[in-house]
Amino acid sequence: MTLSLSGTVCIGSFTLRTEVSAENEIIAITGANGVGKTTLLRLLAGIINLTTGSLLIDGVTYDDATTDIFVPANKRGVAMVFQNETLLPFLSVRDNIAFPLRMSGMSRSQSREVAKEAISSHGLSKLAYLMPRDLSGGQSQRVAIVRAFISTPKIILLDEPLSALDENARPELRKFLREKMSEISGYKFVVTHDRQDVDQISDREIHLN
């Protein structure tokens, strides 16, 4: 089980040259602002494609600039969490969590049932019918994390998941994140600026420069 990415992405005048190989592990991606951390995540997610090079996951080609093979985001089994506004603003907490399930072909009622179970097993029952705008920063990140793991993705991409939170809200959510990530096997990437995230969440660090 390996993921190997090697190649370049050019977006306008910006070029990211990258070489990443991962196993079933949690990798922290660090580096200065503008170095291309988010671009790397978008590349892994299938939102953008490689300009040169290729991405192989478990021996399958997901992106290859020379043969034009490209597996789009909706077929990759990925889950993303941004630093804020990860939840769809027009869906309740329950329907946000049900969304990936519905997209995978589950019926509306069944996906809602599964979402409600996940909500209560994470102690979030009070939030089930609230809209994202009614949640605190910590609550919405928690919901976003529950949603990210609901359909057991193969690739988890977290883009500074804790950086919009208060200093004192971070440790608890960091612990929650670590627990969720160790529950499933797959390729897990966390972009962060925080030393504590690197030390406490990740198995390994990739520093971009």
């Binding site: 939102i47 985001a73 909706n74 077929k75 889950a79 769809l88 603003p89």
Partner: peptide, 22 residues
């Protein structure tokens, strides 16, 4: 904010569903 549409793709929405639902 186009990030919502990108998110929908990562959650498995194809082009048609992304357009209608998001």
């Amino acid at each position: 904010d186009s990030r919502y549409e990108e998110l929908a793709s990562t959650m498995g929405a194809n082009e048609v569903k992304k357009f209608y639902l998001v």
